[in-house]
Design a protein around this nucleic acid. Structure first.
Lengths: 207, 207
DNA sequence: GGCATGCGTCTTGTATGTAACATAGATACA
DNA sequence: TGTATCTATGTTACATACAAGACGCATGCC
């Protein structure tokens, strides 16, 4: 059986990302505890972790505020993502194993896009980028990148099922993969930059 | 009165950075709780936070392992630090206020170096760099940078009182400040790169 | 009306109890 | 000898209890 803490964590995180707990909501430990069916202790640990990830902020004796997505946060997340990804593009060790994984993930994206499964599509998308970052072997950056993607998920969930954007994403990723295959790091960086540019402008425009 | 959790946190963190709890040590909540004079609950929260910062790793039903500094960690921390700092050098908003703060901190460094106070010196050093990062306004990077410095502190504490390295650091920082004053971002980046290069090679060489 | 004050309620911060898990070392046995 | 099992001990994971802080609101006073 999974631990009570992780159940509480998953529940709250999912609810925040799905906007079931909207930005600005003030959560109480007890409320969540009864919702999940555990005691307050594991809930508290989950909230602490979510705070370190930047999703909530704990106010003493008041509750946990679901941080609203601010223009500042959008900007920070996108800027940091671009920094990490362009850096790793120039640094990842490119080998058959990485190429294989990227190819497989791109296939997944195509399949899920055809099936209209926005959720799985977004997941494959995410794994694609994550693989590139992880290929540098830098665990700090990899972990940072994961948290960035979580935060971005909250901003972008609404666009996940848009077929036009899906097609754009597939085109972009294909380009990135081609660039990786070519081994030309400048080209990889350029492809990633372009990709983030389009993704970012959509986000910034929306909020 | 400060909270029990923060007291536990400060105690454990300080002990780890000072190597009073050496890498490889297996801590138990109860042990720390009696040492700090609080119950196990706040200790647990402190350990959770320290785990998210990469200083310990919690093993279920076993205890908290103080992560030994690995070559991989050194490399990751230095690489990430350089990435963040060179990026922010090209992006920070340079104004009289930033220049004033850097000037003041450099003065502090000089003063503490003369006084032979390694601890205060290291603190001013850290603030100097932090100001540059914070001047981008990117809160994610600022927070990441702080955690990187903590981790590096653990690797470098031994060198803090070396007067030769202090002199080197002051020279490097003076150069950085000059570059900031000039407003030439390429020059700033170069100065920072040089600075991290020397600092890094000392670290890598030692471990 | 406007302001201070006190009360009731909600929520956390911390302490403590308890059961389950992990491990080491001893012991029994093939 | 080698291995499986048992047991004693240490440790957490989680639940629960309780006191204290924060806040809304009514009440009383000017």
């Amino acid at each position: 059986m999974t631990t009570a803490t992780s159940r509480a964590y998953d529940h709250v995180k999912q609810a925040i990302l799905d906007r079931a707990y909207p930005g600005g909501a003030l959560l109480s430990e007890g409320e969540i505890a009864t919702a999940v069916g555990v005691s307050r202790t594991p809930v508290r640990e989950a909230l602490l972790r979510l705070e370190s990830e930047g999703l909530v902020r704990l106010y003493p004796k008041r509750g946990a505020l679901v941080l609203p997505v601010s223009p500042q946060e959008i900007s920070d997340v996108l800027e940091t993502r671009e920094l990490v990804e362009t850096f790793t593009a120039g640094r990842a060790t490119i080998g058959p194993e990485l190429i294989g994984e990227l190819t497989r993930l791109l296939e997944d994206m195509r399949r899920h896009a055809d099936a209209g499964d926005g959720r799985e599509f977004a997941y494959a998308d995410r794994c694609f980028h994550r693989s590139l970052v992880a290929a540098t072997g830098n665990e700090i950056l990899t972990q940072l990148y994961d948290s960035l993607r979580d935060r971005q998920l909250r901003m972008a969930r609404l666009t996940a099922d848009d077929p036009v954007r899906a097609a754009d994403a597939i085109r972009d990723h294909t380009e990135i993969l081609e660039a990786v295959r070519s081994g030309d790091r400048r080209r990889i960086r350029a492809a990633i930059h372009r990709h983030l540019q389009t993704a970012g402008s959509a986000l910034r425009g929306r909020s």
